[in-house]
Amino acid sequence: MFEARLVQGNLLKKVLESLKDLLTEASWDCADTGIQLQAMDNSHVSLVSVQLRADGFDKFRCDRQLSMGMNLTSMSKILRCAANDDIITIKAQDQADNVTFVFESPNQEKVADYEMKLMNLDQEHLGIPETDYAAVIKLPAAEFQRIIKDLSQFGESVVISCTKEGVKFSAAGDIGVGNIKLAQTASVDKEEEAVTIEMQEPVTLTFACRYLNMFTKATCLAPQVTLSMSPEVPLVVEYKIGDMGHVRYYLAPKIED
């Protein structure tokens, strides 16, 4: 028996919004520690990793490990039927071929349940080593979204360059060149408005705008986003999910042919 109840159901709605453009199907791996998802997009350029810890749920029961393969477009359609203040419960029997989503209004006067077929997905899991990154940049998530949106008008790629002075985002194309520089903030009233840079060595990497734009669908999840970079390895773009987990996107860089 698997059952996970989340009073703050809108977190789950937001997680799905942040995945559905990048992935069409994926497996949710459930264990007594929580729920995890790892999947690459169809072209294997990016990878998404989601963690929802058991202690972040208001009720969590998972008697035996199970992997629930889901069509994320269908799951997203179902979660859109939940109101933002609904309590969401996900339920499945052991070795079941379907999953049930229950949406309760806060006053318990409306209860809806939706059943969805599970899929058998044979997905490749990648081992992601713990890495000390050369540069770790934290900035407001909305600012990052705006930068990527603005620079996407200029070309297909964004160059992210981090030095101790700050971080620079650049794009070039037929209409010209765009550069956006962010300095580390000296002092801010609110922590979530800060730009902070922890740098061991300067790093410059080039990434496809298309994917960065899809990652910014997670902006609704958290006030801040963390970018971790090292020379010639995938970028990590991380958004926290409340205090129960995270969505991490990994993006393979573009390198000299």
């Binding site: 690459m40 350029v45 990016s46 990878l47 490749e124 899991h125 990648l126 080039t206 860089p253 042919d257």
Partner: peptide, 14 residues
Amino acid sequence: SKKQTSMTHFFAGT
């Protein structure tokens, strides 16, 4: 010109 790399180029399957 720069070429897009693949995720499997960096991380191995488990």
